[in-house]
Write a protein that binds this DNA or RNA. Structure first.
Lengths: 343, 343
DNA sequence: TTGTACGCGTTATCAT
DNA sequence: ATGATAACGCGTACAA
């Protein structure tokens, strides 16, 4: 591993000049500059990132907290893959490196220490949940005004920096779409209420119905847990009520697909006998039979935005709990009977 | 940010004693040790990871190279999610941090510089392809005997450290399974031949047939590109040849699902009129209609093993091009008509 | 068992 | 435009 000193010696300049040349932090006479670059190339010199971080007092890393392994399965690979890609995009653009931090289930949550150990300059937290330990850990980050950002999760009583999609509007989009298709008895299969997402979706569902002069009917509400299985389970109840129920809006694609599977087993054809809309526009939506109409969530963009915002805060040092909401869009496929399209 | 010096002062000891106490690198008298720990706790001290890396001359990071974004979509989120989880598991266990490195499409591939800049101590390369620039970059790593490892890719002419699944045997498993079910005219829908995977699968397919005294028939070979669409396209050819063809083995789940969709549109019921087997046992296999029999690839374990091996090489400094092959297993679902099971 | 002292490879601040 | 030099916070060899 060649060091700056060797380059300086070969180029016949001081170490400081080598630094200036390679970092471009100050002007260097072209001739000198040339000599240095040549020497660096000859010696195959690459500055030490570690030494640089040390001298600068910053790691140059953006940390991304992932939920512990079993939960990754639960929340779908597509979700994290898209978010990470977006974060990766922002990180590369900003000249940072991306440090992946997995949370283990047992250990006490401690986000602050990642900053104290200077492992990261900023943090994006994925898959956070509404649990006391989690909130406590986030509060400590806020107390020290450390640059962090939640994605797709917020807390009713706490103002934390966050980026999310507008799930209320996304759900309203789905319901309005079904209403335009002529559906009036629209069932809603939601996930657990302790995700901020779920509550938002219910609001959107109700809002769209009211806009159309329809009074939300609690007999059209079904409870799932975002799993394929719970969608299938719901189909047992729903199948018997078709055609009274003429459409089902499910809070994610997995439940929608489980639902469709159950319906099909009972001879009910989604897209013909009942319209079905999912949420997330995951890969599975495209592969489903029939292909599933869904609400696309701009995960890539959300990851990107969260990373850019949090790095900006890290560099400028001006902490405040921003809250960004990105737009969703409908992706229409055959599960509603019509043609494929994006609205 | 408190430093060692402050802790030492508060505890009334030297900085060296603080280091020894917190790292456990040498014996410290219990009483002293207690004072130091108390002081550290009082001051909320966390050693700087950057300074530690600097002093040790190692970053403490394992780098994971991801293919550039568009390709992530192509190779399925499930794939990377599982691998990354496995790598994360090993990394945590080994006390390292995980640095995610995205490759951009345009820039010249340069893995070596990650070592020269001391950003990482070891490297796991995911989604490598058989291209000249890639091979060249890997060769440079080998020349310098740097600790790296490929996952699920090898090169015929080059001995690089790699961890993969036994795709030849995995494919043979699938075909043997179909043979036991009584199928004899088994079609094979493969992916592009320039992935080492694809070639291995073809070998396994042929081997299993020969074992059963059946001569491989090139008219039963179909070419796809691992996409859902190409599976659908193949169904156009295959549909007309059923029941002459009594089973189809597809080289991944996406193609299998596209195929099933196309067949269903022509009134052919997978699992009844023709057996279908996929490969990967992705989430989509479970969600497919009918649920897809598939070959499970131990991605988590592969990621874990690759990381452990490469970190071991990094620490012991004994470079050699190991090549590990992990076993696959059949996951039987309804697309072959029978009951759900794991063989 | 504990303390002293140096080195690690940069960045950044001062002189020149 | 360039050089000298002081941090930066830790590990560790050596001395006590």
């Amino acid at each position: 591993m060649t060091t700056r000193k060797e380059v300086a010696r070969l180029a016949g300049v001081s170490e400081a000049t080598v630094s200036r040349t390679l970092s471009g932090s100050a002007a260097v006479k072209p001739a000198t500059r040339h000599r240095v670059l040549k020497a660096a190339k000859t010696l195959n010199y690459t500055p030490s990132a570690v030494a640089r971080s040390f001298a600068r007092g910053r790691s140059g890393n953006l940390g991304v907290v992932m939920p512990y392994v079993p939960k990754v399965h639960l929340l779908s690979a597509h979700y994290f893959s898209e978010l990470l890609s977006g974060i990766g995009d922002a990180v590369r653009e900003s000249g940072y490196s991306l440090m992946l931090l997995f949370r283990s289930p047992d250990e006490r949550i401690d986000y602050v220490s990642h900053f104290h150990s200077r492992k990261v300059d900023a943090l994006v937290v994925l898959g956070a949940r509404d649990r006391a330990a989690e909130v406590e850990a986030l509060r400590r980050l806020r107390e020290e005004k450390l640059p962090f950002c939640l994605v797709n999760q917020y807390y009713a009583d706490e103002a934390f920096p966050a980026v999310e999609a507008d799930h209320r509007e996304g759900s309203a989009l789905a319901v309005r779409f079904l209403l335009r298709r002529g559906c009036t008895r629209i069932a809603f299969l939601n996930g657990p209420g302790d995700y901020s997402n779920s509550a938002d979706r219910l609001r959107g569902y109700r809002q769209a119905l009211r806009e159309a002069g329809i009074r939300p009917d609690s007999r059209l509400l079904f409870a799932g847990n975002y799993s394929h299985k719970s969608g299938y389970a719901a189909s047992l109840d729903i199948a018997g009520r078709i055609p009274e129920i003429d459409a089902v809006f499910a809070a994610n694609d997995r439940m929608a697909i489980g639902l469709m599977q159950g319906l099909k087993e009972r001879g009910i054809v989604p897209g013909r006998d009942v319209a079905v809309v999912g949420y997330d526009d995951s890969d599975a939506a495209k592969l489903a039979d029939p292909p599933l109409t869904s609400v696309r969530v701009p995960l890539f963009e959300m990851g990107r935005l969260a990373a850019l915002r949090v790095l900006e805060q890290a560099e400028r040092g001006d902490w405040f709990p921003f809250h960004e909401k990105l737009e969703t869009e409908m992706v229409v496929r055959k599960s509603c009977g019509g043609e494929t399209a994006v609205i």
